[in-house]
Nucleic acid binder design. Structure first.
Length: 573
RNA sequence: GGUGGGGUAGCUCAGUUGGUUAGAGCGCAGGACUCAUAAUCCUGAGGUCGAGAGUUCAACUCUCUCUCCCACUACCA
């Protein structure tokens, strides 16, 4: 009996996420969670939340003319609904602004200070008098001291690529308001002394890196090799976790909060606490190795931009606390899903966003495409043409048509019942051999979190079903021997059920329709395939005489006219 | 600039420790079949594996140089 904790990188609160965000963490995490739930005996906890603090949230709220708390509550509800629309099966979708995260973050702040890992330092920051706020580097613009470009950002010049310090900009101004009434002010902040933990973090990475993909470990080692720098973990903002010491406002920090990157990963734990409070469950047996989490296997999913924070920064918080917190075991990172060679972009409205996607097509369509073309090995391009080709071929033609043809035939020739007659022969032996090699491979790909390969293998198994029907040709045999035709129909119906079972992680809605149509009971939908599996038995699992109902067409094809319309509307191509 | 990842059939991508004629899906051409959403099945065409050099009996695979693309580079998250 395995206990598996799964977290997806937390989507930021400032608006509905695009397909790239979905493909790069929430969706594969969901597919993996669904797969693991289908393994007999597994206990799975799948946690996510909105990441709500920070400057962008404040600015987005201001732009929307709302109080930031109201804005976040509204956006959280929207993201929650959209996630449900995509059948993301979070056990809990929390909020980093909720009380549990606040208390945990303050706890970590306290403990780290007790361990001598925090000190106050003064730093110089750009302050916008008119905006009444300190400005993060990228929100300060001005003339580049290197090349003279007039719209350089405070962190980097887009023209010459130089890395900049905002205090070096010539004629700086606020990109929030455009005001030039900005000045450099001293401000006190808490610094986390990451440099002191360099060796411990490296030792920890060494102990885990063998199980991480190359993308993950190379990013972690790069940071370690460059040397961990002490890092400010507080900000001059009002929206965030208040900085406290022993439960009371910290003197001098009344107007400051913890930096969003300090509190966001803590929300993995905080969201679990929210879940436990709501469901009357025990969160510590998932997170405290002294309270039952010792045997938990913890898997994180994220885009590559998040890897450093999960392999280095957050481990500093956890290891530095010297408390028995559960650490990540396996970490799956993704590259980017691109939009016609460029990037998806919220501000430029490039690409398709989750809410809009659901208006166009059912979630299964998107889920299948984004998993079958997952940006695992490198950045991957989304195009309408390949989306159309993939859906029409894989889902409509190979899977949908298979289910349709066999159920319709059973209905017209066998009274819509699973036939009992006939003996398995050569074609069935071939099919058993296919399943015997392919199902364990499918299983292995899922366990290795190789999602493209899992989708390809799933498709190959569906395709083998069509090949089987060509070999068995019940419609030909029916003319001479109804009994022989019955074998093909029985096996075909059982294959349809099996295809529904293996489809569940990726396309849960359609899989459910198939399994319902074939009357497969809930407890017969598990998919743990291995050496002990009775592969021949899979072809004769449905009860003889069981009434089946051909489901309505499972996947409508995507027409050329739709592609043309969407290309026009979304600016692809 | 530094670091990392890529450049393999028209397109999207696999290619394990270097080893016989480099693979898959889509697309394309031809054929078969008719139960089915003109779906399915079979066959075929198509690649000097970014360029050059080196190591080796043997290189898509290892080394070096060059070139192109992308990401990260710690105060956006």
């Amino acid at each position: 009996m395995a206990r598996i904790l799964i977290t997806s990188a937390l989507p930021y609160i400032n608006g509905v996420k695009h397909l790239g965000n979905l493909a790069g963490s929430m969706l594969p995490a969901d597919v993996y969670a669904r797969f693991q739930r289908l393994q007999p005996g597994n206990e799975v906890l799948f946690i996510c939340a909105t990441d709500e603090h920070g400057t962008p949230a404040e600015l987005a709220a201001a732009e929307a003319g709302q109080a930031v708390a109201d804005y976040c509550r509204e956006q959280h509800d929207i993201q929650k609904r959209v996630g449900e629309g995509f059948s993301l099966s979070f056990d809990w979708f929390g909020r980093s602004s909720n009380q549990p995260n606040r208390e945990l973050t303050q706890h970590f702040g306290d403990v780290l200070e007790d361990r001598g890992l925090i000190e106050e330092r003064t730093s110089r920051q750009v302050y916008s008098v008119d905006d009444k706020r300190f400005l993060p580097d990228r929100y300060v613009e001005g003339t580049c001291p290197v090349c003279g470009y007039e719209k350089a950002r405070g962190d980097q010049c887009d023209n010459c690529g130089s890395l900049l310090d905002p205090v070096d900009l010539i004629n700086p101004y606020s990109s929030v308001s455009g005001s030039r009434n900005v000045e450099i002010r001293d401000t006190r902040h808490l610094f986390l002394l990451q440099s002191k933990l360099q060796d411990r973090i490296r030792a920890w990475v060494d102990s885990r890196a063998a199980e991480w993909p190359q993308l993950t470990s190379s990013i972690a080692y790069k940071w370690l090799d460059e040397g961990l720098q002490d890092r400010s973990i507080t900000r001059d903002l009002s929206w965030g976790v208040p900085v406290t010491r022993h439960g009371k406002p910290r003197p001098g920090f009344e107007e400051k909060v913890y930096y969003v990157w300090f509190d966001a990963p803590v929300e993995y734990i905080g969201s679990t606490v929210e879940w436990a409070e709501a469901k009357n469950e025990n969160w510590e047996r998932w997170w405290r190795t002294d309270k039952g989490a010792e045997d938990v296997s913890y898997v994180q999913f994220m885009g590559k931009d998040n890897v450093a924070f999960h392999t280095v920064s957050f481990p500093v918080t956890i290891l530095g606390s010297e408390e028995p917190w559960k650490q990540v075991d396996r970490l799956k990172a993704f590259n980017w899903l691109n939009w016609y060679g460029g990037k998806f972009s919220t501000s430029q409205k490039r690409g398709v966003f989750m809410d809009t996607a659901l208006e166009l097509l059912p979630s299964d369509y998107w889920r299948w495409y984004l998993i079958a073309n997952s940006p695992e090995g490198s950045d991957t391009a989304f195009t309408w043409e390949s989306f159309q080709a993939s859906i029409n071929s894989d889902l409509a033609n190979v899977l949908g048509n298979f289910v349709n043809r066999i159920t319709k035939y059973a209905q017209s020739k066998f009274d819509g019942k699973v036939p009992a007659e006939g003996q398995a022969g050569e074609a069935e032996a071939w099919m058993v051999k296919e399943l015997k090699t392919r199902l364990p491979q499918l299983q292995a790909h899922y366990e290795a979190m190789e999602f493209r390969k899992a989708a390809a293998e799933t498709r190959a198994i569906w395709a083998a079903g069509n090949e089987y029907l060509t070999k068995a040709e019940p419609w030909v045999k029916y003319k001479t021997s109804v009994e022989q035709a019955a074998v093909g129909v029985r096996v075909g119906l059982n294959l349809a059920a099996l295809f529904g079972i293996i489809a569940q992680p990726v396309i849960p809605d359609a899989a459910g329709k198939i399994l319902d149509a074939l009357g497969v009971p809930a407890d017969k939908r598990m998919m743990g395939f291995g050496a002990a599996t009775d592969y021949a038995g899979l072809l004769d699992a449905l009860l003889h005489g069981l009434a089946i109902t051909p489901p309505p067409v499972l996947f409508a094809k995507i027409e050329d006219t739709q592609v043309a319309e969407w290309t026009e509307r979304f600016g692809g191509g």
